[in-house]
């Protein structure tokens, strides 16, 4: 019996393929692509300010709202944050990645790899939560500042209008630190992978041709690690752009894209505006990906 069924399908490979492919394909087309399309549709509707009802008529009104100064500022603020987080992660990630790729023994490397990826696999909310503990007014940072008698400096820093706030746990600096912490492994791994691929003979060749270690680093390693850096930055940039948890928990009253989307769809029920807002990160990400492809980052992914 089973033989007969098996033979039936064996003679009809197209049908077999359809049977295999249909469930995942239909699921994704309906659930995922369907959702993305409804997102697009929604962004052309608008919210009636008086009734609080979504009016299902085609309009560009909602998109026009994106260009009012407050919203433009939100885009700018988020992009600047994403950029600074990305730059800072490169600076912190590079030495560790370099160490892993060049100096660690095989056993050490496995161990380090686990140490870098483990936080990634630990609950995201919990990792965010840990920074609530760290940055709190009564928390470890303030304690340490007092310990080394720098609490004056900390307070002076917090009084800075653009970077500071009532405490580190309610300030742009806080947001920055948490983002940096959360996404750092995404930067370390691609850089390490890129550096790992540089054959040792290349470094020896550079030395053989008279380059000092510093010159070798600058002229050989750095250019070859660049695709890895770009690959990592895709993660740090994209993830920062879309996150709303961190700004919600550590932010002052100023909005970021994610927080704005959450607020519009939630409290005010303005799904059209939230949808239009989401087009922002999508467009920014697509341009970033195109740029990254041009710079050859996809070879390192």
């Amino acid at each position: 019996m089973l033989n007969r069924i098996s033979t039936y399908f064996y003679r009809r490979p197209r049908l077999t393929l359809a049977l295999f492919l249909a469930p995942p394909l239909i699921w994704f087309l309906v659930v995922y692509i369907g959702s993305l399309i409804s997102l697009l549709i929604n962004s052309f509707f608008y919210l009636d300010g008086f009734t609080g009802q979504v009016i299902r008529e085609f309009t560009l009104k909602t998109y026009a709202k994106l260009f009012i100064p407050t919203n433009l500022q939100i885009f700018l603020r988020t992009t600047v944050m994403a950029l600074s987080v990305t730059l800072a992660s490169i600076v912190i990630a590079f030495p560790l990645a370099y160490y892993m790729a060049r100096f660690a023994s095989a056993r050490m490397k496995t161990w380090l790899y686990l140490a870098v990826t483990l936080p990634l696999w630990t609950s995201y909310v919990v990792r965010v939560y840990s920074w609530k503990l760290i940055l709190a007014q009564e928390g470890i940072v303030s304690w340490f500042a007092r310990l080394v008698h720098l609490d004056g400096l900390l307070n002076w820093y917090l009084s800075n209008e653009t970077l500071g706030g009532p405490s580190l746990s309610v300030s742009p600096t806080g947001i920055f630190l948490v983002f940096l912490y959360i996404w750092l492994p995404y930067m370390i791994i691609p850089i390490q992978t890129a550096l790992e691929r540089v054959p040792k003979s290349l470094i020896e060749a550079a030395g053989d041709l008279g380059a000092t270690p510093a010159q070798t680093f600058r002229t050989v390693l750095l250019p070859l690690a660049f695709p890895g850096v770009i690959a990592g930055s895709i993660f740090t940039f994209s993830l920062t752009l879309g996150d709303f948890i961190v700004p919600q928990l550590f932010g002052t009253s100023s909005f970021y894209i994610g927080k704005a989307v959450l607020t519009y769809q939630g409290t005010s029920g303005n799904i059209p505006l939230a949808a239009a807002f989401t087009m922002g990160p999508i467009i920014i990400m697509i341009s970033y990906l195109l740029l990254a492809r041009k710079l050859g980052a996809f070879d390192a992914l």
Partner: peptide
């Protein structure tokens, strides 16, 4: 894609 895109897409 950033989680928020998937999220708001499904929400919409």
């Amino acid at each position: 894609l950033p989680g928020i895109v998937t999220g708001i897409a499904m929400r919409s």
